Every structure is written in structure tokens, then in C-alpha cells.
Amino acid sequence: MKFESMAQRHAYILERLQTEGNVRVADLFEALDVSAVTIRKDLKMLEDKKLLFRTHGNISRANPYTKDRNVNEKENILADQKTRIGKRAAEMIEPDDAIIIASGTTVLQVAKAIPEELRVTVLTSAMNISMALLDKPNIEIVQLGGIVRKTSTSVTGTYAEGILDHFTCSKLFLGVDGIDMEQGCTTSNMMEALLNKAMIRTAQKTIIVTDSSKFGKRGFGKICPLGDIDQIITDDGISPAMMRDLENMGVEVIIV
């Protein structure tokens, strides 16, 4: 495909972003049949106009870098989607399961959706999740200890990581701040990322529960590559291209 003018190239790039959300720069070289220098100039001009964001080898419509926000602020973002995701995830919990529920507003909805009559053991780093489970008589709660992060009401640190060495669990329900095809699963806090790594080692199966706004985002702390994830439960806002790429990597994507 050959475009004669810069305006035509820019329109094509923005249309691709509108459709796909994220685009590999290498794909643009081939599609536009122009030099790497020309593409870089085009992308810089569009980025200067705040029409796209560039990362290594990719472009996206939205700023891919996340920031740490208070749990009370995040709880109101895409609340309906998070509730549906939490209910679907809770359906995967079986009687007498020993599971880990990490921290975050979406995994909080998992805890709230667990039926009161279900007998299960829950390990968690988040105090608000423990509080949500207190009135459910058949649920045994193991609260991890450590340094409290006030923004997330959860604990982090080597003490919490060490406690996990004494357990083995069937499932981990994990929330993330970003899912990126290159960087994998990330969170905005380094200490949280280290604890999440330990949780993955403890669990036989890792299930990401996240709303679709986290796709194409990157946090400061790397948790794991996408190959370490078994399933992702999300809403229908995920782009078809992202869903296809994840499934090609062997990750089961469940849409609610």
C-alpha cells in the first residue's frame, strides 16, 4: 500500500489505532511501504499532537504507563464490569479449594461473590478482602502479614512472601495494573510485584481478573510474562487483536 502524502499516512495510522488499540511499528513499515526514518517522523508528529503514545516497537492510543492510585478512587472505575468479572471468577471456586486472592478492586469483587455456603480457604494480602469475607462462616481466612500499603489496603514485603512458602493453593486470582504483549503483567508498585511473583509460585493455576482498560498498559513493577498466566477474565472492551494474540500464546480469555 503506497500513500503519496503525509496526511494520508497519518490518517491510516490513526485509523489502525482506532480499530486495534495497539499497533506494532514494524507492521507500519510493511503496510505503508516507506522508510523507517519517514515512519519515525510521522509518529513523532502525531505524538507531539497527543494523538498517540510510543513505546518500544509499538504505538497506542492511550498512555500505556500506569500510576499508583488509591483503592477508593479505582473502585468506582468500570464498577459494573468489575462486578460481572468477580461473579464469573467466583464460579470457578470449588468446595474445599484453597485459593489466593491478591489485592485490587476487581479481585475484591471475587471475594464478595463467593457463596456463603461454600467451604473454602482463602489466603490474601488485602485487608479489605479479609473484611469482605468475615461474615461468611464457611470461609477460613489466612491473612498475610507485612508492610501495609495504605493506597491498596494490602501488605507487601519479605515476611508476606515467606509465609507463602508454607502453603500450596489450587488457584490464584490476581489483579494487575497493566497487560502488555511485550512486558507481560505489571503493577504500579515494585513490592506488590514481588509478592505477586511469590503467589504465582504457590498456586497451581493463575487467573487474571481485570477490566479491559488495563490492556496495552504498563506498570513500574513486572509481575510475570504472559506465558505464566492460565486464564484472563475480562469484559468485552478488549480488542479482537489483543484477544487473538493472547489466545495464540495459550492464554484462555473469558469475556463477561
Rank of each mutant, 00 (worst) to 15 (best):
V120D: 00
S125E: 00
V107A: 13
D177C: 13
I147R: 14
A102L: 05
A111K: 09
T105Y: 03
L174M: 14
Q143V: 00
A102G: 14
A132M: 03
D177G: 15
K171S: 13
L144W: 11
T153E: 07
V148M: 02
L108I: 09
L133R: 07
N138T: 07
E117H: 14
V148S: 06
N138V: 08
F173V: 02
I114S: 07
M127C: 01
I163W: 14
L174S: 14
D165H: 15
L174H: 09
S154G: 13
C169I: 08
L172R: 07
E161Y: 02
I147S: 14
K112F: 11
D135E: 10
K136V: 08
V120A: 12
T105F: 11
M181C: 10
T106L: 14
T105S: 14
I139L: 09
D180N: 15
E161L: 05
T121V: 13
S154P: 05
G175F: 10
L144S: 05
I147T: 13
L174W: 05
E161H: 14
T153Y: 10
S130I: 02
T121P: 03
M131N: 08
E116S: 14
S154W: 07
H166Y: 15
G104P: 02
T156K: 01
H166C: 15
E117C: 01
A113P: 11
T158P: 02
A102Y: 01
R149G: 04
A111T: 03
I100E: 02
V142W: 10
D135M: 09
A126I: 10
